[in-house]
């Protein structure tokens, strides 16, 4: 009889991604709703030392798959090890953070186990002892509720959506034996951004620029984003014009973000862009054109020249922080 919840935590170079705490916290809530245990799972190499941290977010038990074969992510190796653990422990629900790696892993895992998967969920609840997942489709133009068949039920949770809650549990650590099987995909090189700036989908504050930036100089936005510990994003128009790299694009063909605060600067608000940011908690729009559709989605709007308004906001916040 399947029982309990697995929350798979993602780490990189011995540090948990922020989403791992979201996944474990949400896993705790689901486990409580079921009246069952929460087991956190981490995979990697040299990670035993960081494992206890997950007890703080409500893990009753922490399974540590520590092996040289798991030092770098491979969908085959990680899928095999996780599938083996699921076979052995028989959880009812498996929750995985929907990062690039989490999306990839959950998809391959669900296919291997032949079970249902709800990807990139924004809300999870238990009804009649089963998981019901809410997820946006069409980049958030529509939300669907999904019921999952098969055991376990697998869901991935969207970055920055589930609340992080500290609730200390035992966090009993169990090292598990690892057989990663045949891994045909090897990581031969890594280039990781070391600027220290927070990643777009993980940021609490996103300051985005559009065609109204008029060129690749985003320094006024970067200054404000840095001050708020946030990230800089861009509209498709700005990316297509070559102002910013593709990885900064917010919208239906870019990233979907859900920060606490989204500041749209010189972005008119095409439907594809609105889809990518409308689940932000607060939206501020700054645009010269009072008719710009972005104002219809904004909590606060300023009609004006962003090159005057944004530095004025930065100055005002600096005053506050002084």
């Amino acid at each position: 009889m399947a029982e309990g919840v697995f929350a798979v935590a993602e780490q990189r170079d011995g540090k948990f991604r922020k989403i791992s705490f979201e996944t474990v916290s949400e896993g705790r809530r689901l486990a409580d709703a079921l009246g069952e245990d929460l087991t956190a799972v981490i995979l990697g190499q040299g990670i035993e030392g960081i494992a206890p941290e997950l007890g703080k977010y409500g893990a009753d038990r922490i399974l540590v798959a520590d092996d040289p074969a798991l030092a770098d992510y491979s969908s085959e190796g990680y899928t095999k090890v996780l599938a083996d653990l699921i076979g052995e422990k028989e959880p009812k629900i498996v929750l995985i953070g929907a990062t690039a790696i989490g999306k990839d892993l959950s998809a391959r895992l669900a296919a291997r186990l032949g079970v249902g998967l709800a990807m990139d969920c924004t809300e999870l609840k238990i009804e009649n002892g089963k998981l019901v997942a809410t997820r946006p489709i069409y980049a958030g133009k529509i939300y669907i509720e999904v019921e999952l068949e098969g055991t376990p039920q697998i869901a991935s949770n969207r970055s920055n959506v589930m609340e992080i809650t500290e609730v200390q549990k035992d966090g009993v650590i169990e090292k598990v034996s690892v057989d990663a099987g045949q891994i045909r995909t090897v990581v031969v090189d890594k280039r990781i951004d070391t600027s220290g700036r927070v990643e777009l989908t993980e940021a609490d504050v996103v300051v985005s620029g559009g065609r109204g930036m008029g060129g690749p100089d985003f320094s006024v936005l970067e200054e404000l984003a840095d001050l708020l510990g946030g990230a800089v994003g861009a509209s498709r128009a700005a990316v297509d014009a070559g102002y910013r790299p593709q990885s900064d694009q917010v919208g239906q063909t870019g990233k979907v973000v859900s920060p606490n605060l989204y500041i749209a600067c010189g972005i008119s608000g095409a439907i594809q862009h609105l889809a990518g940011m409308s689940s932000s908690k607060y939206i501020v729009a700054i645009n010269k054109d009072p008719e710009a559709p972005i104002f219809s989605k904004a909590d606060y709007g300023i009609v004006g020249d962003l090159f005057e308004v944004v530095p004025a906001i930065t100055a005002e916040i600096k005053k506050l922080k002084a």
């Binding site: 998967l117 999904v146 019921e147 999952l148 939206i283 729009a285």
Partner: peptide
């Protein structure tokens, strides 16, 4: 044969009209 079944569909919550400063 679907293992993930859509049981309901809804529009995202409407955002309240904002404040123009």
């Amino acid at each position: 044969g679907a293992k993930a079944k859509v049981v309901s569909m809804k529009l995202p919550p409407e955002r309240k009209p904002g404040k123009i400063i």
